[in-house]
Amino acid sequence: MQTTAADPRPLAVQVYERICSDIVEGTLPAGTALVQEQIATQYGVSRTPVRDALTQVALEGLATLVPGRGYVVNHLTDQDIKNVYEVRELLESLAARQALGSHTRQQLVRLRALVDEFEALDPNNAEELFHLGLAFHAALIEPCPNDYLRKVLHDSWNHPLQRRISTTYFFGPEHQAKIVADHRKILEAVTDKDGGALEKALSCCNDPGRQLQGKAGAA
């Protein structure tokens, strides 16, 4: 790995993204020690960018510096996951309220198509479920006039911690069926311009409690 014309970013940024991806995808599971020397050798870089990258990985909540062990990939508790979804629900509800009543016919058709496509996915393809679910929520708030709010939500959805939660714990037939049902209720509320129903549907969609069942602590 090295800085090239194709990717001129600092090595620390490239190493950070690589480590994040390996954690999100499960290549580096919870409890794995992130040893600077090993990572530097594996990625073909010096220890300096690895050290800087690990500091950022810890700041993002993916790892913790343990005295005597170095950095270790975090186990996520049920409460960790609920905290992420609590913030997501508050921000998304605000954006959806501001967007309500402004969706065009084409945008409503797009939302319906995304729900149908989500329902047709392989329920065990966690990556595809995550990306298509994200596309639905992005389309939902597209008419929101607050550009900054939309950006904050975009960054939140794409945060490596959110990606790790979604692709590690939330997939399978039961999850898929729940999200399809939630998204159809959201779409119905948007079509009817029913703010109360929209709030209720979003709250249900952003409630991970019914699906956790101790998965986080056991992972």
Rank of each mutant, 00 (worst) to 15 (best):
A53H: 05
A139F: 04
G133H: 04
Q98F: 03
P123I: 10
V66T: 14
D52I: 11
A40Y: 12
S93P: 00
V87A: 14
H131D: 02
A58I: 06
A139Q: 09
I39L: 15
Q106A: 15
D116Y: 07
L54S: 05
A126V: 00
L62N: 03
I39D: 01
Q56R: 15
E37D: 04
T104C: 08
V87D: 13
L140M: 06
A58D: 07
L108E: 01
V35K: 06
N83L: 14
L111R: 03
L108W: 01
G61Y: 04
N124T: 07
S93E: 12
Q56W: 09
G44D: 10
G101K: 06
Q79R: 14
Y43F: 15
I39H: 03
Q36E: 14
A126E: 04
R105Y: 03
T104Q: 10
Q79M: 11
L132G: 02
L111K: 02
Q107N: 05
T55K: 04
A96E: 05
G70K: 10
L108P: 02
T41I: 09
G44S: 08
Q38P: 00
V57F: 08
L59P: 00
E60A: 15
E128I: 01
G133L: 04
L129Y: 02
A126W: 05
L54H: 09
D78S: 15
A63D: 03
P67M: 07
T48Q: 15
I141E: 06
